[in-house]
Design a protein around this nucleic acid. Structure first.
Lengths: 192, 192
DNA sequence: TATGATATCGGACACGGTGTCCAGTATCAC
DNA sequence: GTGATACTGGACACCGTGTCCGATATCATA
């Protein structure tokens, strides 16, 4: 096969570098991580790093894109069921994040909320797609609603991964969807 | 007066440094700004910078805290009217941001969403305070709702400052509050 | 206006991280 | 086995940081 013809050494090195990045980001935050740190943790020569990625940002970007791709394939297998009156993206996202919690904690920016642009854009795209045609034809309204839900989701996800309050993914998703669809006012009457 | 006894030179230097930081952040993003850049733009010796602030982060932190303090004093003058069934913090925040748009664009992290911890915490505090006692006694629910609204607000504010779609502050506040209180579902029936 | 206090300047310094290059060595695919 | 390819480790120039210090400019005050 053509795509699979990746030298074992290359695959191994990239895997080690990505893992090191995730660990160090979760520990100290993305900004504090240096290429030297990454290579040290991965036990990879620094010059080797630069044969694979031009800089730290490229490593993260590549890691995230591979990961989003994997998630997309997962999503294709199971049914995304965009019906049932809820957001389709959030449930799988919470579930997937729960499965590989540490990695996601790093990808969400560690303690410092340094959420990568790729993730924000991806979530935004899902939200916009699911809101389109539902929120009326007002372009401004759609845009504001998209930003609103995207920001809310990322913040809730970040808190959920970080605080580790023992909330199962299904539960946090239920809370998120309730807030997104019915707002905070409803929590006034139905005390849950 | 004791507080006012600040050497003109000191006041001038700090003002120049803060302005330079705002400008450069708005132009290139906070991470890309160097102390050298700041001093160059402010026309201040680099060694002088370090007599005032230990590093770049301290400068931003100081600038933000002064600004939040100014906003707090403003808020004390006018009535915050926490009644009327809406969030009290968002209206003044949008209005204030509109008045000093460039500065706020920088404080919200420029293009890269590098929102300072001080601002996120401050907004979070306002939201938690206003939600307390309204969202039932469930601690988890309160926390999730707080994060939800905080993230949503920051993202909407960021978009509004950046996109410059000509939306007046009162209008963006109305949209935000509608989403926060009644959710997205309601926009289905009432097309606005 | 004179004077002492203090802020600013600018240049030097060591330090740490970046990104590039290359020759030598280890590992791969076939 | 053999040729191709990846990894290593060390050197290099570069840039930004944070510190220090003597010289100069500006301040508050008498």
């Amino acid at each position: 096969m053509a795509t699979g013809s990746i030298d074992r050494r290359v695959a191994r090195t990239r895997r080690l570098l990505q893992e090191a990045l995730f660990e160090l980001t979760a520990e100290n935050g993305y900004a504090a991580v240096t290429v030297e740190d990454i290579c040290g943790r991965a036990d990879v020569g620094r010059s080797t790093f630069y044969t694979h990625y031009p800089d730290k940002d490229s490593l993260r970007k590549a890691a995230i894109e591979e990961h989003l791709e994997a998630m997309r394939l997962e999503g294709d297998a199971g049914d995304t069921k965009p019906s049932s009156g809820g957001f389709a993206f959030s449930g799988p996202a919470f579930a997937h994040a729960d499965a590989t919690r540490m990695m996601h904690r790093a990808m969400m920016g560690g303690k410092n909320h340094e959420i990568p642009e790729e993730i924000r854009d991806w979530i935004g795209k899902q939200v916009r797609h699911e809101l389109t045609g539902i929120v009326g034809k007002d372009a401004i309204g759609l845009e504001v609603a998209t930003r609103f839900v995207t920001g809310a989701f990322l913040e809730v996800m970040h808190w959920w991964l970080d605080a580790d309050a023992g909330l199962p993914p299904a539960e946090i998703d239920r809370l998120f969807q309730a807030l997104a669809f019915d707002g905070t006012r409803r929590m006034l009457t139905s005390p849950e």
